[in-house]
Design a protein around this nucleic acid. Structure first.
Ligand SMILES: [Mn+2]
Ligand SMILES: [Mn+2]
Ligand SMILES: [Mn+2]
Ligand SMILES: [Mn+2]
Lengths: 138, 138
DNA sequence: CAAAACATATAGCCTGGGCTATAGTTCATT
DNA sequence: AATGAACTATAGCCCAGGCTATATGTTTTG
């Protein structure tokens, strides 16, 4: 059995990752929507996340409280500076993980499914290893 | 932007994975403790998960409700058949993911940290790709 | 074998992230 | 400009998974 403290620290880290996971997916999606359609509307966010509208409204409230988005009642959602920064990082990680799985020979659809979960648990070091693999396999 | 329905399905899948994630980590840890020390005590589980005792007690209750463990008041915890089966699968996945990250050149400590989160989001297909990579890199 | 130490359980609290049902706004169309 | 459709918000509910403080068992040990 591994060292207890180390093991506990690892589990704690995963729990922390879960706390930011929702925020990462939201800001990434919001950035994509703004880029693709000019604005991020709650209805579209809900549809793409596969979640009800009220769930999105509540989440937007938390994101706003945490300084990641700005939003006015009945208007679409905007990213703050720090929201944009998080979106950038998330998007990049998402793409690296996705590209890595594909480069490894995983089918596109599967890669897309798995990447959505894996992305939140990949450290910088592992991300670099993924990039290296992609580069070397080209 | 990806197809909305497909994207929603992917997010939903991740949410489902999160629902079984805690169960997987518990039963895997319980199996390890039983093997290593002869029994799985709540205090040890709490210590290794980095969580308070009451949190463990409540989780054990849910696991019992879901037919994964058996436990009597003030006694240690046992796995049911289906709990053992889940522990087997989880442990195997954990090991493959860990071995894969190491084979990719990630440092042991980092691999151990990342594996704890990634394991829950790896499909069978991706797991096979990981195994293939391990094999080929030996 | 009693007392202290330890382990476990319970009570009561909190937040996140889901939901449905209902109410209120905005926008497009006629 | 009025109305209907679409969107957004609010209210009120649920469960998972955290916590602290307190109570109750169990085990060890003097
Ligand atoms: Mn993503
Ligand atoms: Mn994701
Ligand atoms: Mn594990
Ligand atoms: Mn895990």
């Amino acid at each position: 059995m591994p060292d207890a403290d180390k093991q506990a620290a690892n589990f704690q880290r995963v729990r922390e990752a879960h706390q930011v996971e929702v925020a990462e997916d939201y800001v990434e999606l919001i950035a994509d929507l703004i880029e693709a359609t000019g604005e991020a509307r709650a209805a579209d966010i809900a549809r793409r996340l596969g979640v009800s509208h009220p769930t999105v409204v509540k989440a937007i409230g938390r994101l706003q409280r945490d300084g990641l988005v700005e939003s006015l009642p009945y208007r679409s959602v905007f990213l703050t500076e720090s929201g944009r920064a998080m979106a950038e990082r998330s998007k990049r990680r998402h793409e690296v993980v996705l590209g890595f799985l594909k480069a490894l020979g995983v089918a596109d659809e599967t890669a897309e499914r798995d990447a959505e979960g894996i992305e939140h648990h990949v450290s910088d070091e592992t991300l670099s290893a993924f990039e290296r693999f992609i580069r070397d396999s080209r």
